[in-house]
Simulated scan of single mutants.
Amino acid sequence: MSGFDVGARLKQLRVQRDLSQRELAKRAGVTNSTISLIEQNSVSPSVSSLKKILDALPVTISEFFAGEQLSREQVFYRASELTEIGDGILSWRLVGARRPNRRMSILHERYPPGADTGEDMLEHDGEEGGVIISGTIELTVGGDVQLLTAGDAYYFDSRLPHRFRNVSDSECVIVSANNPPSFSDGGNAQHHA
């Protein structure tokens, strides 16, 4: 796991945009204390909460985790070089997070038992697909709910509301890709009314 400092990065972006914690919280539809606790690294935001906050800046997930520096065009990545962008419970490790002009996201995802992307369904531009490597995942896309197991796969339009939940008692591992390489280009707060 990378030692990425979510709190410091969020504070850096908020200050760069001359926003108070209160103003950012208002724009994102979360409480002031949520922003404060995340910036202090006292809590790890869920994927859906982080997405709401980044949409309010607006900053894409990939821009958030890329930080200030971009690397040369690296070809091979050791396991230790993948950037953790999960929420502290589920693990999403991004391949090539700092690659300049990256046009897709490839993720190595791990969902422990009970892990969930959140009750706020994810919605963003693009497409995504993946293959379940081990375990079982409950995937909701639009109104359709399916249990997928090792060897099963999915591919859908990411504008459809979707949610991943591990309802089993063992870890689920998925390798996935999405394009464009972010959840959102911002401005999608209406999805979380």
Rank of each mutant, 00 (worst) to 15 (best):
A115F: 09
S105K: 02
I174Y: 04
V131G: 08
F65R: 13
S48L: 07
F183Y: 15
R103K: 09
N101R: 15
V175F: 14
H192Q: 05
L122F: 14
L107Y: 12
L70D: 08
S71E: 14
S184Q: 09
S158I: 01
R93Q: 12
F156L: 01
Q16W: 11
L57M: 13
K11I: 00
P113L: 11
G135D: 03
D169H: 08
G29E: 14
Y77N: 01
S134I: 00
S168L: 10
D18M: 04
G96Q: 03
T149G: 02
R102K: 11
K52A: 09
E119G: 06
I85Y: 03
G142V: 09
H192R: 10
D152G: 00
E84I: 11
S36R: 11
L94R: 14
N101W: 11
S36V: 13
P112I: 04
I35W: 09
E171W: 02
D144P: 00
R22N: 09
Y155C: 14
S20Q: 04
R27K: 15
Q74W: 00
N32A: 11
M1P: 02
D55Q: 13
F64R: 13
Y155T: 09
L13R: 09
G118N: 00
P45R: 03
L37K: 08
D18F: 04
I85T: 08
R165D: 12
G7W: 05
I89N: 09
P161I: 10
D157S: 01
E73K: 07
A66K: 13
N101E: 14
F183P: 13
I133Q: 11
G142T: 07
S42M: 13
V6Y: 10
I85L: 11
I38N: 03
E127H: 12
R102M: 05
V95P: 01
R110F: 08
Y111E: 00
E73W: 07
R103C: 07
Y155V: 13
A66F: 07
E138N: 11
R98Y: 02
N179F: 12
G130S: 03
L90E: 05
R99V: 15
G118Q: 01
T117L: 00
I137E: 00
T149N: 01
S158L: 03
V6D: 08
L147C: 08
S71D: 14
R93K: 15
G114V: 00
Y77C: 01
I106R: 05
E81N: 10
L70H: 13
V43Y: 02
G126Q: 08
R103Y: 06
N178M: 10
S170M: 15
P45L: 04
R9A: 04
K52S: 05
E84W: 07
G135M: 02
G88M: 15
L50T: 10
L54K: 05
G3C: 02
R110L: 14
F64Y: 10
N166H: 08
D120F: 06
V30K: 12
